[in-house]
Amino acid sequence: MKKLIPITIIILIIFGLAYVMSGKIEPQENVRALGKFYLENSYFGDYSAKSPEVVTAILWDYRGVDTLFETSVFFLAIIGSLTLFRLNKKQEKEAKERIEKVEELTLVIKTVTKVIVAMILAVSASIALHGHLTPGGGFQGGSALAVAPLLIIAAYSKYALEKQGLDKTRALILRSIGLIGIALIALLPLTKGGFIMQNQPIFPWLGGSLIFYNFFEYLAVGAGFTAVFLLLAIPEKVFKKILGVGE
């Protein structure tokens, strides 16, 4: 209870200050001019992005290059984490062998996890593929996708995931496919007289290139986080042995 005294004082000060302040501020009722421009033009209008979802329209059309470079920041951050935990081929093989019996969770959790993983895959794909119509998109779907391997690592172990073929290298390949896909979809309209990194109607029967951007971003984000967690799940003993420190 003693811990709560400072926070009570802080809250009281907040209310007091707010009482003083409240006469002086104007509640904001209008959107800024730039926001109004996006709202009016996202589907109708002269500068249309042909998407009723304004946030996705801004992400992949109006500020498309911005998002491209944000994705490259994501790429570099993951590369940086992998570099910190770098292993050579022999050490990587060593890391894949289980050195001791890992304690796994009970049967109930394992069985439920199997079903849940199948459902998470479907749900995350739905979030990503409907990003141009309803709330959602590549970033959201990708972060939902990353929960599935995380659950498998928690309920079974990292070795179970690797035995079925999803190891670090495969995850990195998937992520590279995602990034190359984004670059290709951005560059492809140039050959047909379109513009770079915008929602161009190169695939008219699916409503433009938004869906492809979303899908490839989904792959890149999901696989990037998966690779990180596969590295993080390696037991500390293996690393200590490789680095030759401690114990």
Partner: peptide
């Protein structure tokens, strides 16, 4: 902001807590 909710729930509640527990 339903877009942010979808990304934020998965990241801040799920992935981030798991990362810190690791």
């Amino acid at each position: 902001a339903p877009d942010i909710v979808l990304a934020y729930i998965a990241i801040a509640v799920g992935i981030y807590s798991a990362l810190l527990v690791f």
